[in-house]
Every structure is written in structure tokens, then in C-alpha cells.
Write a protein that binds this DNA or RNA. Structure first.
Length: 1182
RNA sequence: GCAGAAGUGGUGGAAUUGGUAGACACGCUGGACUUAAAAUCCAGUGGGCAGUAAUGCUCGUGCGGGUUCAAGUCCCGCCUUCUGUACCA
């Protein structure tokens, strides 16, 4: 009674482990700590499939190994139990998501328990458990109560910001905050009302409520974060996503962009994963440049003409006159010009520039200021001057200041002072002329190559700057691109489109007018949504310029740009660029930035692609925000009143008014008097309205949104350290002891979602002193996905083909009874299948089916098509068939079959398949050998009577019917076999299809292992205490060495091979010595813990094997006295030669040359050279 | 397009610093046991050529070059597949 009864053994030990709490971790210990974590699962309705355990088995092996190595191991497990599927299911069935979630968790737990994981279940967490989400709400509150100080580069309490504001206003504070924050002084601040203060603080908080453009998914009825969108559609469900402005909670993750990047150097994560985080954060270094938008003029239309503000009718005359006047300036004019030219005052002035019908002396277009120096003539023309001033002001909106020659000549300083004052007093943005367009560029060195600018169609300035003439075209374009979904835009990358706005911007250095275009190749969401286009240096700009015939100035030394843009920074030498000529990319960039800074028109800037994360979801099954609204301002509920529990709702859908499902809750108002949730009816008569009149009753509406799926998973690894603590998130002692996760296992699909958010929250919590570490995970490993092998059956589609009066051919599928054909019978193509055999079959089918189906019904169906011959109704049965001849065609449809109906030879279990779905009950099958199987001719199962399916590797999914559950494997082969087999499949990080093809090999290995410890037909336990043979000790120690190395390198597949080799060798050696077999049990226990425990017990131990010390490798057992040298000739191995290891190379060479096989190979030739690598190889070069 | 990973028998995959290519397993073939099957055990198994045979020769790690006494491994240039990402200015 001692055979390897794995079912009994496994059940026995699983029970004992649970009862004795074998794997419970203590928060204090003399041993060093080690924290091994799996990404906790979402408990889906489909149950656990064989892909889930892959990572869990690997981490369990590591956790068990670490226990053997003397570590205090924390290895917890829990459930990420808030989420969409449970809610979707609830919408469909009305079942409370809590109920289905609990049922699913129960099933998961049962499945997990059967695999023998060493989880400490006493620490289980569930994100949907109020005792857990209390702390998620708490973290949210802490984020709300914090701001990001860029000076100290850390998050600080918002109370400290309030103190700063009251002392020095917000001018000196450098914080991560909203862009539209207005400057204010300490006095301003102290004068603000409480609401105004709250409004301002909201712009600084790390989680803030703001009107933002979000990704709205109408089908899911909720917003989605960027990482929840894949290829422009929702990750879940694949529904379209549109951009929409909504008031939402956001997380200021952008404040941490640089630290999230820098932290990657400190952690041991896979490079591809680090790369995708780096790309997601998307740091790029360059400059932000401000371009002034030039004011439009009636004569606008082309470059230079734009600047002419003069009257179009007399422009030619004016220009000629202006030119003349410039040649003969008065002394005063000359003197003043020296001060005004080259933007010395910060603004560009032009002299003798025509405005309307006049030629004023100096004009600043940007500020619409005219400076006149009166010559002698004007002394007597005061009235005329006044008229002129008035005309300029009224007709053109120019202000005029006037100086006398004397003033300029004698007190230039005073004159300049007055001009400067006037300039500063004039609003910079008056009219359309004062706008600036800010762009971000990584190539400020190419600024002289700018020949146009492009704005995203959504850019704020588009409507403002577009000229009357271009208005219709621009508006049409903006509307068209708004309609195009994200997906369309992406599918259509190659098409160049855009429209000229009619407006121009001024080049910061040359002053040239640059046309401003809009184009959807510029994305509103990146940078500023505007670019300075340098067609010679950027391919997209180049293509755009070519397409619209815009100039492509070349600013690169010795580069041909007639075919394409030149984007190679390394080999750049700038030319035709004024003060940048001859410089390299790096030099020119620096110089350009300096020049821009001097002009106040730009600065060096680092730009990030990363956006703030939207944190609101219009969903039921998520964490409620601990937020109520007073006078429209969000207020936090204090920790002592948490958790704020999810309310009950009548349905899990949005309300008719479009509010989230929580809008349906009847008891969902916050009573600040009692600090309890109360009925909505208690809200004042304006009920539900966030605005509250004075003298209210202290009852306020609660937030209706819930938190996103990643909220609960962003800090859960720390809650495991002290999961039942009711006072704090986790005690300081526990946090200090466990620090962070030493080894984290999970899929790479979380690279830019969970793994970025969790790093963000950890850094935040660390800043605020809630956590002692600033990275959650030291080492991370991505296990590869286990793919499913889907099975497909071929359904024969019988079409009816007819010719109508107008000659077109019409096909209609013949819907009588499903017919399936075996895989290799007919080719799957888009063409119809030509087959006499099938034709006969189809007629036969009709003949046999028609008596069963009411004949009239069949006729009715044909008339439904109504494309057949007109007198069809009058046909009798025989005539009908006669009519159908030649009108029948065949095609094949491929559909998924459940993989459980298919065996390893790809043969379908027909009866199981027929019972699968009611519509297949009477299905007909054409077998591989051509036999037809239907209800009349029962399946015989004779030679060749098989129905084959085709197979293809796909992601495991319920909808593809290719999910394989681990339960059956455990039942049939045992958990130990499953564990070893999953590891044996291949390298952990590699994706691989699931196939049970090789599982018997692993299973028989375990049986062989068992037999090593047993003897005789009855397999009774039998070991000797005799010393083991030298060979057996060698086997043991080489196994210890290899297995230890493999576990530490996470190369679990190779250690399974090592075990097989060891058992094969020990079996051959007939080893049954305790000296070898006792350590062997420990070696194998991380992989196959049940059999190891059973053997350990039989070896006479009362304690669990789980903490038995790992065997110590001893080199001495592997020391050899001789080596079988491979002897190569010109690198090709020819034979082997056994030689003592203590020979010198010269002795080896001598021995080899003396060997007769060597001489045989050489056939009398003398070798040129003999390479001897002692202990390795001998190579004879001939 | 960009970034990363990979390409080895019929299959999954070994080969850790350049040193016996194909470990270990599946599958297949043959044999033993059995009335039979399952299970178990034994032997063989990269291709080609020669030989009754032992055996020998030869070609072989996506393709083409190179470095080296020696290359699956290092270098250069291609091809293919997978994964991630994308008008990122």
C-alpha cells in the first residue's frame, strides 16, 4: 500500500499545511527577511486557467527555496476584486457584483489550494473589502492634502503651502501645478475668501478636480486612462474612445516624471519593461519658444506684405516715400533710432513704416505704438497732429506718443523712459496682434530653418487668429478632424492634410513673417499642441511643406535636402543662420537658447510625454471617493469615519440624467453633524445640487464617481505587511522590517499601468513619511504568457445561387442543419468548393431533410428569397429538386470549438460537441475518410472514422473556448506534476502555447523518484544508513550545485532536467542510501512539495520539510583524477582520450601524439600546432 | 518608422566565461511483459553518403561575410518572426 498515490498525498499535506499554518510569516524574526510577491489576480468568472499558476509556481519555488536557505519569507496572496467584468455581469443579470466576486474568489481559492502554494493566507487582502479600501481612500486623502514642491523635489503637506502663500504669495513657490495659475501676493491671499483659497489650492494638490480632456468610452459609459486604451480602442471590450471635456479627479503623476525615470536605475527590472516606462514618460530635452502672432492687415496675403499696415490704395507711393525719408533722418530721429533698433527695449520697432495714409517715424507693431519726433514743420501743425493721432487711434488702433526734437536731443534718457513705460502700460495682447504661440522643439539650433508653423486643429488660438478669408476653410477642417476618431487618424498616417489660417507669426530673430497653418499631424495632447516647422530638418514638416508648396530653406552645411529632410543631429553643421553659422548641434542649441532667453522669447525646457492620470470612473464596482461637496468645493471625510462604503443601488447603470450609477443610490449624502451617510432626501430642497445656500443643514451630496481599477493595486504590497491593522495603513515596525518587495512576479502588460502608478504612490508615500522606501519592488520578473491552442471546426455552408432578371448573381446560405467537415477534406479558401461528391451529398441531404422539415416551410423559405423563378410556388417536390440542380455552391466557415472536446491527435469528440449547443444537436459530420455521420447513421468509430479539427495558438480566453483549467491536470497527474511540468515547458519569461503533450514525462519522473525510496513489488519504504557510493555522492552534489544556480537564475526549466538526470543516475546506481536520498528530498521540495513532504515524513521527520536547511554543496565530490579529452583536428572532434588531470600541457601533447588514433588521423603528416587546454580540449591543427 | 527579444532535430527546449552542438523530455521505430490494452521496462532516433557490420566520411544552430587553433556563442551586413510603441515636434 505504498505506491505513489499522489491524490491522497497531496490532499493530506495541503490539509496539514493549512491546519498548522506552516507558511505563516512573522513580523519579527532572527532570520533575514525576504518578500516574494505575485501580482494578485482579478477573480474572473472563468476561473483560474493554466496560465495563471505559471508565475505563482515560479515564485513559490523561490519562496520555498528561500525558506530552506534560512530566510523569514513573506509570501502573501490576495485579490484585485474591483473591476469591470463583475459590473458588466451585474448589469446583465442584476446580481450584486459583491456576490459574484465572492463566488469567484471562492473558486479561485479552491483552485489555488490544489496546487500547493506556500501562501500565507492569514494576510489575504481584497481590494473590494471595505476594511481594505478604507486605506485606499486614506491614501487618496493624503494626496489631496499634499502639493509638490519643485525646490525640494518632494511632496509636502498642503498646510505648509497655505503658510507660504500667506507669507509671500505664490510668486516664489515653485510647484507642480496647473498651468493657468494666476500670480498673487501675500496680501491678495490673505484677502481671498475661503472658497477662493480652496479654488487656488485645488490647482496645487497632487490629486485635483479639474475640467480635463478625457478619453470617454460611450459603450462602457466611463472614462479611461491612457494605458487602458490600446490602438485607439478600449483595452476591455475594444470599444471606440472619443475625446471629451469633463470635470474629473486627476493624479498629478507628472510631478514625479523625472524621479520615476531616475528610479529605474536603482531597480533590478527587465530592460524591456524599463524601456517601456522610459518611453511612456517620454522625456525630451529642447526649448520652448514663443512666437508673436503678427497683426493682420487688409493687405495681408503674402510674407512681406503682411507687415505693411499702410493703406493699400496708396501703398506703393508710401513705400517709396518711406524709403526716401529713411535716407535723410533728422539728428533726433537718428539718435532715437539708435536706442529703439534691434529690440533694445524688448520690442521691435520699425522706422518710417507706413500706417494707413501716414508714415510715422517709429512703429512698434506688437504694442501698436507709434513714436513721433516732431521736426520743425510740425511745430506749426498742432491741430493737424492731433487729427493724425486720432485717426491712427480710431482707424488702426495705434497709440501715438510724441516728442520734440529738443527733448530727444537733450534728454534722451527721459524719452526712453517714457517709451518704456508706455510700452509696459499697453496690453501686450490687445487686438489680434498680441497673441503668442508657444512651441516645444528639440531642435532650437534649427530655428533659422523655420518656414511655417503648424497648430493642432484643437489649439486654442486657431479660432482667434484665423483671418476672415480663411475662416470657412479652417472651420471645416477643424470640424472634420474632430469627427475623425483617434483610430482613423492613426490608420491614416500617410495622408497629409492641413489648412492655412491666414495669420503670420514673427520669427524671433529675423523678424520675418511665418505663415501659421493647422494640421492634424500635430497632436493637441503633446507639448503645446503647436510646432515650429523646420522642413529641412524634420521629415513630417518636409512632407507638409512639399505638399503645400511652402519654402524649404536649407540651413545645413553641405547637406542635400532636395529629396528628404536631414534629421541627423550628430553630423549637423548649421549654415545660413546668422549667429549660429558653423556651429554643431550642441553648440548651436545652447547659443540659440541663450539668445531666446535674452529676448524673453524662449528658454531651455525638458518636456515629458507623460500626462496626469484621470482618476474618476463612472462606475459602480470601485472604491467610492471619500469626498462630499460643500458649495461646490470638494471636502474630505476624516479618517476616523472611513471606510465610506459603497451604497446600494437599484441598477448598475448610469442614471437617466447621465450621472454615474452612484447617482441612483438613495442613501448617499454626508451628514457633517453625525459624520454618517444619510438619505438623499435630507439634502436641502435643491437636493443633489452641489451649490448650497447659507444656513444649510450640514448635509451634503457625496461624490458619484468611483476610483479606477488601479487604485486598489497601487499600494497593496505594503498592506500585506500588516493587513489587519485598523489604526494605520501599516505599522512602522512592519514597514521597517519588510521594507519592500524583494521579488515580484507578473505579466509585462502592466508595464505602463500598475507598475508606474505603484512607483508613483510609493514615492509619494515616502515623501510624506508614510513609507520608509521610495521604490515598491527591488527585483521584478515577467513571466511569459501561456497561450491556448484553439480548436476550429469547419462548417460547410451551402449556398443557393440564382440569376435575377437583371443578370446579377445572388447567393444565399442554405439554412437547414449544420454540416461540419473534417479538416483535411476540403481546402479553406475564399472560392467556392468544386465537388461532385458534395453536390450529391447536398441533394441527398435535402431529400432526407425535407420529409423531416415540413416541406411547405422549406418552400416558404425559398419564396422568402423571392429571387427564384416566379412560378416557384407551383413546383412540387421533385420539380423543386430539379430546379435546384446546378444552383448549389459550397463554402467553409471556420468557428471555434471548445478545446476540451479535442484530443491530442486533433480529433473531435463528436457527441460532446453535439451536446455543447442546442443548434448542433442534429448536426451532420463529414469524417476524414468521407463517411457521413448523422442521427440516422450512428458514429461507429471504426478505422479512419475520425473528425479532425484545425488548431491555432491564441491568447487564452473564454470567448475562444481554449481555456484549460489546472483542476483536471491536478486530478489526473497531481499538483506536483503540474508544477514541474509548467516549469519544464521552457524559460519562465518566454511566451509558450499550452500543450499537455509532454506531461507524462514529468509524471513518470515523479514515479521514478518515488521508487528510489521504495523497494519490491509492494513498493515499501526502504532506505539504508550505509554510506553512499562515490558515484551517488557525485550525482547528489552536482545536482545541488546546478539546482541552486538554476533557482537563483530563475532557470527553472533546466533544473527539472537536472532532477531527471539525477534520478536516472541514482536509479542506475541502485542507490538507496539515506545520505543521498534525504538531501535529495529537500532539493526537490520547492518544485514538488507534496511528494517531498511525504518522503520527509517517511524518513522519520516530524517537522515540515519546508524549513529544512538546503543541502550544502561540497566541491570534493566532483573532483576527478582524469578527464576524457575530446581530441579535435582543425576544430572537428574526432575521438576521445582519457588522460589524468594532473598532466602538464606538454605531457598531454606527448600522450596525444603517441596515441595511435592520432597517427591514424594524421596519416603521416606533422601537425603545425597542437592546442592544449588542460581540463578542456585538445585541438590538433594540421 | 523606432525600441526590445528571438531564429538550434518531427516537437518543447539544453549548451552559464568562445572549447565534444542537440542535454532532458515529448513523439516516432523496434523489442520485452500481457489473451489484449493500459502501465512499466529495454534499445534506437539530426540529415546525407559508404559499409553485412563494428565503423568511417560528410553536411549541419535563419542568410552572406569576417575574427580565431576553435564560433550556436564574438564582429560587420542582410532576412524573417514575435513583443512593445508610435505623426512625441
Amino acid at each position: 500500500m505504498s505506491k505513489y498515490h499522489f491524490n491522497d498525498i497531496e490532499a493530506k499535506w495541503q490539509k496539514i499545511w493549512a491546519e498548522r499554518q506552516t507558511f505563516k510569516a512573522e513580523n519579527q524574526s532572527d532570520k533575514p527577511k525576504y518578500y516574494v510577491l505575485d501580482m494578485f489576480p482579478y477573480p474572473s468568472g472563468a476561473g483560474l486557467h493554466v496560465g495563471h499558476p505559471l508565475g505563482y509556481i515560479a515564485s513559490d519555488i523561490y519562496a520555498r527555496y528561500k525558506r530552506h536557505k534560512g530566510f523569514n519569507v513573506l509570501h502573501p496572496q490576495g485579490y484585485d476584486s474591483f473591476g469591470l467584468p463583475a459590473e458588466q455581469y451585474a448589469i446583465q443579470t442584476g446580481q450584486h457584483p459583491k456576490k459574484t466576486t465572492e463566488e469567484n474568489i471562492a473558486r479561485y481559492r479552491e483552485q489555488l489550494d490544489k496546487i500547493g502554494f506556500s501562501f500565507d493566507w492569514s494576510r489575504e487582502v481584497r481590494t473590494s473589502d471595505p476594511d481594505y479600501y478604507k486605506w485606499t481612500q486614506w491614501i487618496f486623502i493624503q494626496l489631496f492634502k499634499s502639493w509638490y514642491d519643485k525646490n525640494e523635489d518632494k511632496a509636502r503637506p498642503i498646510s505648509e503651502l497655505e503658510i507660504l502663500f500667506s507669507k509671500e504669495g505664490n510668486q516664489k513657490v515653485i510647484a507642480a501645478c496647473d498651468d493657468d495659475t494666476e500670480p498673487f501676493s501675500a496680501e491678495d491671499w490673505n484677502g481671498f475668501t475661503s472658497e477662493e483659497k480652496q479654488q487656488i489650492l485645488l490647482k496645487y494638490r497632487l490629486t485635483y478636480l479639474a475640467e480635463t480632456e478625457v478619453n470617454w468610452c460611450p459603450q462602457l459609459g466611463t472614462v479611461l486612462a491612457n494605458d487602458e486604451i490600446v490602438n485607439g480602442v478600449s483595452e476591455r471590450g475594444g470599444y471606440p474612445v472619443v475625446r471629451k471635456k469633463m470635470k474629473q479627479w486627476s493624479m498629478r503623476i507628472t510631478a514625479y516624471a523625472q524621479r520615476l525615470l531616475d528610479g529605474l536605475d536603482k531597480i533590478d527590472w527587465p530592460q524591456p519593461l524599463k524601456d517601456s516606462q522610459t518611453n511612456w514618460i517620454g522625456r525630451s530635452k529642447g526649448a520652448s519658444v514663443k512666437f508673436k502672432v503678427l497683426p493682420p492687415t487688409p493687405s495681408s496675403g503674402g510674407g512681406a506684405g503682411y507687415r505693411l499696415t499702410g493703406d493699400p490704395q496708396s501703398i506703393k507711393l508710401l513705400l517709396r516715400k518711406a524709403k526716401e525719408m529713411r535716407k535723410s533722418p533728422t539728428l533726433a530721429e537718428k539718435k532715437l533710432w539708435q536706442e529703439l533698433r534691434t529690440s533694445k527695449l524688448g520690442y521691435k520697432f520699425r522706422r518710417q513704416h507706413p500706417v494707413y495714409k501716414f508714415i510715422p517715424d517709429f512703429v512698434c507693431l506688437e504694442k501698436r505704438l507709434i513714436v513721433e519726433v516732431d521736426g520743425k514743420i510740425h511745430d506749426f501743425q498742432v491741430e493737424e497732429d492731433e487729427l493724425r493721432t486720432l485717426t491712427l487711434k480710431e482707424k488702426k488702433g495705434f497709440n501715438v506718443i510724441r516728442f520734440t526734437n529738443k527733448e530727444v536731443e537733450e534728454n534722451l534718457e527721459k524719452v526712453i523712459h517714457r517709451i518704456t513705460e508706455t510700452l509696459n502700460s499697453l496690453p501686450s495682447g490687445e487686438g489680434q496682434g498680441g497673441d503668442t504661440i508657444e512651441v516645444f522643439t528639440t531642435r532650437p539650433d534649427t530655428i533659422f530653418g523655420v518656414s511655417f508653423m503648424t497648430l493642432a486643429p484643437e489649439h486654442d488660438l486657431v479660432s482667434k487668429i484665423t483671418t476672415e478669408a480663411q475662416k470657412a476653410e479652417v472651420e471645416a477642417y477643424v470640424e472634420a478632424s474632430a469627427k475623425r476618431s483617434e483610430r482613423e487618424r492613426m490608420a491614416d498616417v500617410k495622408t497629409i492634410s492641413g489648412v492655412f489660417t491666414g495669420a503670420y507669426a514673427e520669427h524671433p530673430f529675423t523678424g520675418e513673417a511665418i505663415p501659421i497653418w493647422i494640421g492634424d499631424y500635430v497632436l493637441a495632447g503633446y507639448g503645446t499642441g503647436a510646432v515650429m516647422a523646420v522642413p529641412c530638418g524634420d521629415q513630417r514638416d518636409y512632407d507638409f511643406a512639399k505638399h503645400f508648396n511652402i519654402a524649404i530653406p536649407n540651413i545645413f552645411e553641405g547637406i542635400d535636402i532636395s529629396e528628404e529632410a536631414f534629421a541627423d543631429k550628430e553630423n549637423t553643421i548649421i549654415a545660413h543662420s546668422d549667429f549660429l553659422n558653423g556651429l554643431s548641434y550642441a553648440e548651436a542649441t545652447q547659443k540659440a537658447i541663450e539668445a531666446l532667453e535674452a529676448k524673453g522669447q524662449g528658454k531651455g525646457k525638458i518636456n515629458y510625454r507623460l500626462r496626469d492620470a484621470v482618476f474618476s470612473r463612472q462606475r459602480y464596482w470601485g472604491e467610492p471617493f471619500p469626498v462630499y461637496y460643500k458649495n461646490g468645493m470638494p471636502q474630505m471625510i476624516a479618517l476616523e469615519h472611513l471606510p465610506l462604503r459603497l451604497p446600494e443601488v437599484s441598477a448598475y447603470l448610469p442614471t437617466e440624467e447621465g450621472e454615474p450609477p452612484l447617482g441612483r443610490a438613495e442613501v448617499w449624502a454626508w451628514d457633517t453633524n453625525t459624520n454618517k451617510v444619510v438619505s438623499n432626501k435630507l439634502l436641502s430642497p435643491t437636493g443633489g445640487d452641489a451649490q448650497r445656500a447659507e444656513g444649510d443643514n450640514g448635509i451634503y451630496p457625496l461624490e458619484l464617481n468611483t476610483m479606477p481599477g488601479w487604485a486598489g493595486s497601487s499600494c497593496y504590497m505594503f498592506r500585506y505587511m500588516d493587513p489587519t491593522n485598523d489604526e494605520v495603513f501599516a505599522s512602522k515596525e512592519a514597514l521597517d522590517y519588510w521594507e519592500n518587495v524583494d521579488l515580484y512576479l507578473g505579466g509585462s502588460e502592466h508595464a505602463t499601468g500598475h507598475l508606474l502608478y505603484t512607483r508613483f504612490w510609493t514615492k509619494f508615500m515616502n515623501d510624506r513619511g508614510f513609507l520608509p522606501v521610495d521604490e515598491p519592488v527591488k527585483k521584478l520578473i515577467n513571466q511569459g504568457m501561456i497561450l491556448g491552442e484553439s480548436a476550429f471546426v469547419y462548417r460547410l455552408i451551402i449556398y443557393l445561387m440564382d440569376t435575377t432578371d437583371n443578370g446579377s448573381i445572388v447567393y444565399e446560405p442554405f439554412r437547414i442543419v449544420p454540416v461540419f467537415v473534417s479538416k483535411n477534406k476540403y481546402p479553406v479558401t475564399n472560392e467556392f468548393i468544386e465537388s461532385k461528391e458534395l453536390e450529391d451529398f447536398a441533394f441527398n441531404l435535402l431529400q432526407t431533410q425535407v420529409p423531416q422539415l415540413p416541406f411547405l416551410k422549406l418552400k416558404e423559405w425559398f419564396t422568402d428569397i423571392s429571387l427564384l423563378s416566379k412560378n416557384f410556388k407551383s413546383l412540387n417536390k421533385e420539380e423543386l429538386f430539379e430546379y435546384l440542380k446546378g444552383k448549389i455552391r459550397f463554402g467553409i466557415n471556420v468557428l471555434h470549438s471548445d478545446v476540451s472536446f479535442v484530443n491530442t491527435s486533433n480529433e473531435l469528440d463528436i457527441s460532446a460537441f453535439k451536446n455543447w449547443r442546442p443548434e448542433f444537436k442534429d448536426a451532420i459530420f463529414i469524417l476524414e475518410n468521407g463517411k457521413v455521420y448523422d442521427s440516422n447513421s450512428p458514429f461507429e468509430g471504426g478505422e479512419g472514422d475520425v473528425f479532425k479539427v484545425s488548431r491555432e495558438v491564441e491568447k487564452m480566453s473564454k470567448s475562444k473556448y481554449n481555456v484549460v483549467n489546472p483542476d483536471d491536470i491536478c486530478e489526473q497527474y497531481g499538483a506536483d506534476t503540474l508544477r514541474m511540468y509548467e516549469m519544464f515547458l521552457g524559460p519562465l519569461e518566454q511566451a509558450k502555447p499550452w500543450s499537455t503533450a509532454g506531461i507524462t514525462g514529468v509524471h513518470s519522473f515523479l514515479k521514478k523518484l518515488w521508487k528510489l525510496y521504495h523497494t519490491g513489488a509492494e513498493e515499501s519504504f526502504h532506505l539504508t544508513n550505509e554510506p553512499a557510493s562515490k558515484d551517488s555522492l557525485k550525482t547528489l552534489h552536482k545536482t545541488i550545485k546546478k539546482v541552486q544556480e538554476d533557482i537563483e537564475n530563475f532557470s527553472f526549466n533546466t533544473s527539472v532536467s537536472t532532477f531527471m538526470i539525477a534520478v536516472n543516475e541514482l536509479t542506475a546506481q541502485k542507490c538507496n542510501s539515506r545520505e543521498v536520498l534525504e538531501p535529495l528530498a529537500v532539493l526537490i521540495s520547492p518544485y514538488a512539495p507534496h511528494i517531498a513532504e511525504e518522503l520527509w515524513e517517511k524518513l522519520g521527520h516530524n517537522e515540515s520539510i519546508s524549513t529544512a536547511p538546503f543541502p550544502i554543496f561540497d566541491e570534493k565530490h566532483l573532483v576527478e583524477s582524469s578527464k576524457e579529452y575530446p581530441v579535435s583536428f582543425n576544430g572537428k572532434m574526432r575521438f576521445k582520450l582519457e588522460l589524468p588531470l594532473d598532466l602538464t600541457p606538454a605531457q598531454i601533447e606527448e600522450a596525444v601524439m603517441a596515441y595511435d588514433k592520432t597517427q591514424e588521423q594524421l596519416q603521416g603528416r606533422t601537425p603545425k600546432k597542437v592546442i592544449v587546454v588542460p581540463g578542456k580540449i585538445i585541438n590538433i591543427v594540421g
